[in-house]
Amino acid sequence: MSLEEEFEKNWKSATEEQNKIDDITDRKIWTGIEKKIERRKSVKKIYWIAAALIPFFALLIIFKNTFQTSGRGAERILVYETMEKGKLFQLPDGSTVDLKPYSTLTLDRSFGEKDRKMVFVGQGKFSVAKDKARPFRINAGEFNVQVLGTQFFLDQKSTEKKVELFEGKVKIEHGKTITYLLPKEIWINDNGKQDYHFYHPDKQRSFTFDHAAYSEAIEQLERTYNISISYPVQFKNKKVSGAFTGNLNEVLSVISYPFNLKPEKTSEKEIILK
């Protein structure tokens, strides 16, 4: 074999070998690239999954915090509430409240430890356990009621706000006006009137009339007991004299006796003399 032929053979052999090497190298290179691509795809998948889950976890944290806060808030208060029917409740201090329909009484769980404060909406009859060191205080919206130990009816719901005392003593604060009630006394307030303090018809009172017109005597009784009294107009200017003590029915009967008039109660707020 000539030198040229040997050189040509070696060249071809080297070229084929080099081609084999290049194929192996190419495969290695592409395998590496494919692995990198796969890794990047995996990273992207993890990123998008994480991105999708972040709002969920954020919402979960917010919900958890809100729930815990609400729970802590709920633990701090006691709520007594009625719907269609009234219900009698006993409070932690031994007091009882007969809540009328659609009424709510809210107090702190520490009620009775240092004070006896509450917020009231609606209508209810209270029987308060006596405790001079811790007065019973009711926030009734536009006015406040303070008692030591008593029985009373509270109407915060109606247009005409009302406190009617049966036993004990009550202090009412409405703006700058303070009113004290004794048994069988009533306080009312509505949008058209100032605070008005009057007496239950069974409350005994003393009245003195000195040749007063019958109409004037009737008007005084109406103001004292917050009641409407009707009578025949011909007796309007008749005279009434004397000192009288008794409840509404007793005094009205005595001053009307000379005119042969007798009281007839037609409703809680109206009497007719016949």
Rank of each mutant, 00 (worst) to 15 (best):
S215M: 04
T150V: 01
F244C: 01
F126W: 09
K36R: 12
L107Q: 00
T66P: 00
E268L: 05
G124H: 12
E185V: 03
F235E: 02
H197Y: 09
A243Q: 07
L99H: 06
S228H: 12
F89C: 04
D98K: 10
Q151L: 04
K28H: 08
I61E: 01
K238C: 06
E216H: 11
I21Q: 10
R134E: 01
T96Y: 01
Y180P: 00
T69H: 13
A74F: 08
A212N: 15
K12C: 01
N144R: 09
E75Q: 15
R134M: 01
T15L: 00
L148I: 09
E164H: 12
G94M: 08
T69L: 13
T66H: 14
R223L: 11
Q151R: 14
P263I: 05
W48E: 07
T208K: 13
Q194E: 08
K169H: 07
P55W: 10
A74C: 01
A140D: 04
L107V: 05
I62V: 14
N189C: 02
E6V: 15
L53F: 10
R76Q: 13
R109S: 08
I37C: 00
I178S: 12
K169Q: 07
P263R: 09
F120D: 02
K238R: 13
I255D: 09
F143V: 04
L53V: 12
N144M: 08
K125L: 11
L148F: 12
T159G: 13
A50E: 00
M118K: 02
K184L: 11
I33Y: 15
I178W: 04
K262T: 14
E270R: 10
S253L: 02
I188T: 15
E250V: 04
A213R: 01
F120M: 05
I49K: 05
S228A: 11
S253D: 03
E113M: 06
E219Q: 14
A129T: 10
L91I: 02
E5K: 08
A129G: 01
H197C: 02
A243K: 10
E84V: 02
N237P: 00
A217L: 02
V170C: 00
I271S: 05
